[in-house]
Simulated assay, not measured.
Amino acid sequence: MAQNLMFYTNPMSRGRIVRWMLEETGADYAETVLDYGTTMKGADYLAINPMGKVPAIRHGDQVITECAAICAYLADAFPEAGLAPALDRRGAYYRWMFFAAGPLEAAVTNQALQVQVPADKQGFVGYGSMAAVLDALSGAVKAGPYIAGDRFSAADVYVGAQVGWGLQFGTIEKRPEFADYAHRVMDRDAWRRATEKDDALTPPPAA
């Protein structure tokens, strides 16, 4: 069914995470590059993702959106790539992948928007505080070498991309353990192939 795998993306989006994951699987895939405000909001794509956002994939008759969900799905769809632990060893794999999709992303977004959660209201938000999120993540990457144990997995694609971007754009505190982890998980041929393909699609900066 790999020949029926369609990837909907834009190079200036979280589609870069899914591109990396696709390259890790080694699967054949086609791509549709969508533009913000036009084709991404057109009727054809809204039938794929009513949110009008990328990335998404269509694999046969299955449509999957949301980066973490796509990464988890692809790991299961292409088991020969070895990107998911055995079913009885997926605790840390699911835990940290969805930690990054939930508490980490929410905390980073609120910080970027300068949303300050008062100390007495931290129980209302899933992440509590940015410091608590980063300390939890720090413990996870220090326990490594990978986020779910001794082997690279789809969770490292998702968590590694979040950490890498956070360090690049200054939305995650520059701690040595985060830099070491990002370097370790991105030092892979699949990441380099994915980055090269997306960079080639990225328009040059305006003069």
Rank of each mutant, 00 (worst) to 15 (best):
A2L: 00
Q3G: 14
Q3P: 15
F7D: 02
T9I: 04
P11M: 02
S13I: 05
R14D: 12
R14N: 13
G15H: 05
I17W: 01
R19S: 07
L22T: 13
E23I: 11
A30T: 14
T32G: 00
L34H: 08
L34D: 06
D35V: 12
Y36C: 01
Y36D: 04
T38L: 00
T38I: 00
K41N: 04
K41Y: 00
Y45S: 11
A47Y: 04
P50F: 08
P50V: 10
P50I: 10
P50T: 09
G52N: 06
V54H: 07
P55I: 06
A56I: 12
I57K: 09
I57Y: 06
I57T: 04
G60L: 08
D61N: 13
D61F: 01
Q62Y: 11
V63F: 01
E66Q: 07
A68G: 12
A68F: 06
I70H: 10
C71E: 12
C71A: 14
A72P: 12
G82E: 13
G82L: 12
A84P: 10
P85G: 09
A86K: 14
L87D: 15
R89M: 10
R89C: 08
R90L: 13
A92K: 14
Y93R: 08
Y94M: 11
R95Q: 15
R95G: 07
F99D: 04
F99R: 02
G102T: 15
G102I: 08
L104T: 02
L104W: 01
A106C: 07
A107S: 14
A107P: 13
T109Y: 03
N110S: 09
Q111I: 01
V117P: 02
D120V: 06
K121A: 13
K121E: 14
Q122M: 04
G123E: 11
G123F: 02
G123T: 04
F124L: 15
F124H: 11
V125C: 00
G126V: 10
Y127P: 06
G128A: 08
S129H: 07
M130Q: 12
A131D: 15
A132I: 02
A132L: 08
A132V: 06
V133H: 05
L134D: 11
S138Q: 13
G139F: 05
K142M: 14
G144T: 11
A148I: 12
A148V: 09
G149M: 07
R151A: 15
A154G: 15
A155M: 01
D156T: 03
A161F: 15
A161K: 08
Q162C: 13
G164A: 12
G164F: 05
G164S: 14
G166T: 13
L167R: 04
Q168W: 09
G170S: 08
K174I: 03
K174Q: 13
P176S: 09
F178M: 12
F178P: 03
A179W: 06
A179G: 14
A179K: 12
A182N: 06
A182G: 03
R184I: 10
V185L: 00
D187R: 03
R188T: 07
A190M: 02
W191Y: 15
W191P: 01
R192D: 10
A194Q: 06
A194N: 04
T195Q: 15
L201H: 08
T202A: 04
P203G: 01
P204S: 04
P204T: 05
P204K: 09
P204L: 10
A207L: 06
